[in-house]
């Protein structure tokens, strides 16, 4: 695994601020597995949404610039946030496949980038480069059959032909990771449904939609016996956290469950100091459950 020593890493706008504990725990877990997530020297925001109307070249310049900067650091770039992953991977494909767009973008960003970079999500590094069996060997604090619900949301999965981290209708990559960590993943129907995303800032109406969708996700998970939800996107994390309050208030017999980034539990299972993993920053604290299960 010598080639793993340094992996170029793109944080994106949220990982250095609101979701710092996502980044910290990911970096900690990487160190335990023998490599470093090294932040790009220069980077800017990816735009947080891939422009869906193909004539919107401006929306591609931000992520293209990121990719150009990343191409100086190596042959691949890794992200933690699902949205960054989606935007960078789709932009990369567009630049690679569409020569005309590539030329236009080049003149905008004053740099030529050809789309040859490999854009990966940290989950893919764990699965394809490290290998879940190797992760399993490194586990020192197994998660004792805690019933994990893996929430994928949209951006890791769709559109399949552009992103395709796993089967977009029945993904298992997060579940497979948590099996390796000693947890007991539980399937639930809404794991691939949307949380409401940016409608969180879409006024009263948008807020209602987010609450409704995210509550559905939470109820679907808890109803299937999930004891703890893991996410891979700061916006999903935020929406679920904010909506669970509503579920607690409105649904009789609903028991709130902890919601954490998958990297926090990964770090824990790999033996990292719990204090470094930012559990105190989660709205719905996982520590009581972990303590109860003597993890």
């Amino acid at each position: 695994m010598s080639e793993l020593k340094n992996i170029p890493y793109y944080p994106g706008c949220t990982l250095n601020t609101v979701a710092k504990h996502f980044e910290d725990s990911a970096k900690e877990s990487a160190e335990t597995l023998g490599f470093t997530l090294s932040e790009l020297e220069q980077w800017n925001c990816c735009g947080a949404s891939y422009p869906l109307s193909p004539d919107n070249i401006m929306g591609l310049t931000g992520p293209a610039k990121v990719l150009f900067e990343a191409s100086k650091a190596g042959e691949s770039v890794t992200t933690l946030c699902s949205v960054c992953y989606n935007v960078l991977k789709r932009t990369n494909k567009t630049v690679h496949d569409d020569k005309e767009k590539r030329e236009t973008i080049s003149t905008f960003i004053e740099a030529d980038y050809d789309g040859s970079l490999e854009v990966t999500h940290y989950l893919e590094i764990l699965r394809d480069t490290v290998g879940f069996s190797k992760v399993k060997e490194s586990v020192t604090r197994p998660l004792k059959d805690i019933k994990i619900g893996a929430y994928y949301g949209c951006m890791l999965l769709r559109p399949f032909e552009d992103v395709g981290i796993d089967d977009h209708e029945a993904p298992t990559i997060i579940e497979d990771l948590f099996k390796a960590l000693g947890a007991k993943p539980v399937d639930f129907p809404n794991k691939i449904e949307c949380c409401g995303a940016h409608l969180a800032v879409g006024g009263k109406e948008g807020d209602d939609v987010v609450k409704q969708l995210s509550t559905c996700v939470m109820r679907s998970a808890v109803g299937s016996g999930v004891e703890l939800i893991v996410t891979s996107c700061p916006l999903c994390q935020y929406n679920l956290e904010q909506s669970q309050e509503k579920a607690v208030k409105e649904v009789s017999g609903y028991n709130a469950v902890p919601i954490v980034y998958f990297t926090q539990l990964l770090g824990l299972a790999l033996g990292q100091d719990e204090a470094k993993l930012g559990f105190e920053k989660n709205v719905w604290d996982a520590r009581p459950l972990l303590k109860e299960r003597e993890v």
């Binding site: 940016h198 969180a200 006024g203 916006l235």
Partner: peptide, 23 residues
Amino acid sequence: EDIPMPLLKGAPQQALVCGFRKF
């Protein structure tokens, strides 16, 4: 201006960036 301050401060930046792009 209509976005409440707690939301502006508390929400992930990506929600704001994406929201601004869309709205």
